[in-house]
């Protein structure tokens, strides 16, 4: 039986006094891809931010275990070094921070934490060359200041590139598909699929079903009103697409919440 990577139980979280997450339960095992879908304002991005450790979100109840660690006790950088990776919905532009320098600093912080030798410039370049081939990302992008002036698609590809470099155990993709045309979507999804291994896992957060045509999930969860109100296999995504979010909201109101 595969090992659990992430175990979220009864997670409640506030931001600026408003309760956004109202008791999330979710277990992700090695080798699995989970998708979280839900209408706007359901708490999808809050869940991603809480897992990455954003200080604006206050956890008021519940626990998150990640590979045997109490995730909520760790600083954001410690989580990243332990292998949690959040692909941001809105990647931040960092004028004046060179992309290569940034990624080398990130990679070496992670390697140092894992007791590995830090990469020098030459090793790092070799690795970058290898990953750019796998992900088909233009090298010019990487030498520019991080995300500055990038198109929406370029920013998302840069997130996936960083993910490829850092080789996380748990990748959280927060609406990576938003703002992408179909070609960019295919490239991003292709990148994610290539990084899949039996010992890691991914949590794909999306509003639309179309990303899941390319990243096929093992499980689909519907988040609404800060709770997972329905879980199922990949076919649930198609059903949602067909019937719309009103359907699950009605299910939720009727109290016919199904759990897997």
């Amino acid at each position: 039986m595969s090992q659990p990577i992430l175990e979220i139980s009864n997670l409640h979280a506030h931001v600026e006094g408003n309760e956004i997450l109202k008791g999330i339960n979710l277990t992700i095992n090695q080798g699995e891809v989970h998708a979280i879908m839900g209408p706007n304002g359901s708490g999808k991005s809050t869940l991603a931010q809480v897992l990455a450790g954003h200080e604006a979100y206050e956890v008021t109840e519940g626990s998150v275990r990640y590979r045997g660690l109490d995730l909520l006790e760790l600083d954001p950088e410690e989580r990243a070094r332990e292998g949690v990776f959040l692909a941001f919905q809105y990647p931040v532009e960092l004028p004046g921070v060179n992309g290569m320098y940034f990624m080398k600093a990130a990679l070496n912080a992670v390697r140092k934490h894992r007791g590995l030798d830090e990469f020098d410039a030459a090793d790092f370049l070799t690795l970058v060359r290898e990953k750019t081939q796998v992900l088909d990302i233009p090298k010019e992008l990487l030498n520019r200041p991080v995300n500055e002036g990038f198109s929406g698609g370029e920013k998302k590809r840069n997130e996936i590139f960083q993910m490829a470099l850092l080789e996380p155990s748990l990748a959280i993709l927060d609406e990576t598909d938003s703002g992408l045309d179909i070609d960019a979507l295919r490239i991003v999804a292709d990148g994610v699929n290539k990084l899949k291994r039996p010992d890691n896992a991914a949590l794909v957060i999306t509003h639309y079903q179309r990303l899941l045509d390319y990243i096929v999930p093992d499980f689909v969860h519907v988040l609404s009103g800060g709770q997972i109100i329905k879980s199922g296999g990949k076919e649930l995504a198609l059903e949602l697409e067909e019937k719309g979010y009103d359907w699950v909201k009605e299910l939720s109101r009727e109290g016919t919440v199904e759990a897997v």
């Binding site: 004028p95 921070v97 990624m103």
Partner: peptide, 28 residues
């Protein structure tokens, strides 16, 4: 703060993140 969080979420410690952003501010 958002920029600091972005760097920390990539494994870069808080002090180093602040230093990188300070450098970026000055280098212009």
């Amino acid at each position: 703060d958002t920029s600091i969080f972005y760097l920390r979420a990539r494994g870069i410690g808080k002090a180093q993140a602040e230093q990188m952003l300070t450098y970026a501010f000055a280098v212009e």
